[in-house]
């Protein structure tokens, strides 16, 4: 058996699986979107329906604010944990990466425990404070699962920065904040772009959290879900999925060409 043949044989299981369960279904999804009464006009219909447009804008808006907040919080924490060694450091790190493996529904439940009717905030404050099911609750939920993702990306990049760069800036007389601004952040730029893209794309597609919290909020995944299950409008659900998929995939691809690294969302 030649090595060429063997290599091809090694790819065969992957090729068959990916063809049957990724390539063909995605093709079917794209074609399915055009199988309704309007054909390819379904995309035009999205643009003409205020509910879809506002859902799309709302999703982008929440995802963008979450991205900014997660970048700010996680970069601060990552740099702090990267350059300070103290007892309890690894415990803090574990806590900050804990939600990585939480499904979206669990994240939603965490926000309910925090800000729901029986939640902590409602118990501690005298008034009736329930915001788990508002846009702010959704924002907190997305932030909850974005923090660890951004943190890990930024920390991995911060570890690779040569400490001599900072020392060189110091010897040239730069104060600490200038070192951060002139040396650290530029060196972290690719990681920040990557982490931001991951956070944004994950938030755009987050279903589990929205499923638990967004009973009254129209975010795109929830709209797709209701179109599919309640209205049985398969063509529209497919078309919206295609739009959502293209937006997240395109975004990650752009971010990667900007940052030069490998990026994946997930979750």
């Amino acid at each position: 058996m030649s090595i060429r043949f063997f290599s091809l044989a090694c790819l065969l299981p992957l090729a068959s699986f990916t063809l049957a369960f990724l390539a063909l279904p995605l093709t079917r999804l794209v074609l399915g979107a055009a199988s309704g009464d309007d054909g390819w006009g379904v995309y035009w219909q999205i643009l003409q329906t205020p509910r879809y447009i506002s859902a799309l804008l709302q999703t982008i808006w929440i995802s963008a604010t979450v991205t900014v907040a997660a970048l700010a919080i996680s970069t601060t924490a990552a740099l702090f944990l990267q350059r300070n060694r103290f007892p309890g450091r690894s415990l803090l790190l574990s806590v900050l990466t804990l939600p990585l493996a939480f499904p979206g529904v669990v994240v939603g439940f965490m926000i309910i425990l925090l800000a729901g009717r029986q939640g902590l905030v409602n118990q501690l404050t005298p008034g009736h404070t329930v915001f788990a099911y508002s846009s702010f609750g959704l924002f907190l939920g997305y932030l909850y699962f974005s923090i660890p993702r951004v943190l890990l990306t930024v920390m991995a990049a911060a570890e690779k920065i040569d400490p001599a760069l900072e020392e060189a800036a110091r010897t040239l007389g730069a104060p600490a904040w200038r070192v951060t601004w002139d040396v650290l952040l530029p060196a972290l730029r690719p990681a920040l772009i990557a982490a931001g893209a991951i956070a944004f794309a994950t938030a755009m597609g987050a279903f589990g959290t929205a499923f638990t919290l967004a009973t009254d909020i129209d975010v795109l995944p929830m709209v797709i879900y209701t179109e599919f299950t309640l209205s049985a409008n398969f063509a529209m659900a497919s078309a919206l999925s295609v739009v959502l998929g293209l937006v997240t995939w395109g975004l990650l691809l752009t971010a990667r060409s900007l940052s030069g690294g490998t990026i994946a969302a997930g979750g």
């Binding site: 597609g205 279903f207 959502l244 998929g245 997240t248 994946a264």
Partner: peptide
């Protein structure tokens, strides 16, 4: 990893 699970 790039396309939301819902779409898949």
């Amino acid at each position: 990893l790039a396309i939301p699970g819902l779409a898949l």
